[in-house]
């Protein structure tokens, strides 16, 4: 219990120290306020943007494209990876493809996707989807490979059908791998959405950062970066909660 309090105190203490040092450095001229702004200036800018309604709209836009891409990519990839259990030959054919697709820099496809699907919401969702689907498939396939053959033998000896073995053994066995992939994937989905907004967009936190940069409104850039960090932490916390629910359910 004591060590938990110690960890919490240090975590928050470090954050507060960083903010205080940032503010002090900016006010004393130790760091250039033009480039690095200051926490109070960032807060003031954020309040103005929030009251104008722009910031909530951009947060909702980026968060929803991230979440949609994450959900679609994770479900599609996980189902694909799990399905490889039904056919070892298909899995062996698909495995090198997955590895190549995983290594492929999907973000490099962003300009093509924007041209294909426009500057709207769809291109951001597709990028987030592409960023997550392969990782999810590889995580699920990795989980499938950890299924204990002796447990499989047991279920067959009990007269379980292949589908029953899949539902009762393969999916729960692969769940820890799938869950581990979720934490990686939420960050990847956000990177996909943001890069999509960087390339071309009329809304979103990514577009806000790029726009602020072009007009040298660096406090607004820092607002974008700070808000993105907060949204990332909230989504990560959501994934951790989802993990707990899934682990309890299995």
């Amino acid at each position: 219990m004591k060590s938990k309090t110690f960890v919490q105190v240090w975590r928050w203490g470090l954050l507060i120290t960083l903010i205080v040092l940032w503010e002090a450095g900016s006010r004393t001229g130790f760091i250039d306020p033009f480039f690095f702004s200051s926490p109070t200036q960032i807060f003031r800018t954020a309040v103005v943007k929030w009251q104008s309604g722009q910031l909530p709209g951009d947060i909702a836009y980026t968060a929803s494209s991230t979440l949609l891409g994450f959900i679609l990519g994770t479900i599609t990839g996980s189902v694909l990876g799990l399905m490889f259990w039904f056919s070892r030959p298909i899995a062996m054919v698909a495995e090198p493809w997955l590895i190549v697709l995983n290594a492929l820099p999907k973000l490099a496809l962003a300009p093509v996707l924007v041209i294909l699907t426009g500057i709207g919401f769809t291109s951001k969702v597709i990028l987030a989807f592409l960023m997550t689907v392969v990782v999810a498939a590889m995580s699920a396939y990795g989980g499938v490979q950890t299924v204990d053959p002796a447990l499989q033998t047991l279920l067959v000896s009990l007269g379980a059908t292949r589908f029953q073995t899949f539902c009762r053994l393969v999916v729960p066995s692969a769940m820890p791998s799938i869950i581990t992939g979720l934490r990686v994937n939420i960050a990847l989905a956000m990177a996909g959405s943001i890069v999509g907004e960087f390339i071309a967009s009329d809304r979103g936190l990514g577009r806000m950062i790029v726009y602020a940069g072009t007009i040298f409104d660096l406090p607004l850039v820092w607002v974008g970066v700070t808000v993105l960090s907060i949204v990332s932490v909230v989504m990560y916390a959501g994934v951790v909660l989802l993990e707990r629910i899934l682990l309890r359910a299995t």
Binding site: D148, A150, L151, L154, V156, S157, L158, R168, L169, P172
Partner: peptide, 17 residues
């Protein structure tokens, strides 16, 4: 013709979840 006998192995093989 599996499923017609009861089979018990050295490991308990209980589903851990």
């Amino acid at each position: 013709n599996p499923g017609l006998t009861g089979y018990m192995l050295q490991r308990d093989l209980l589903l851990p979840w």
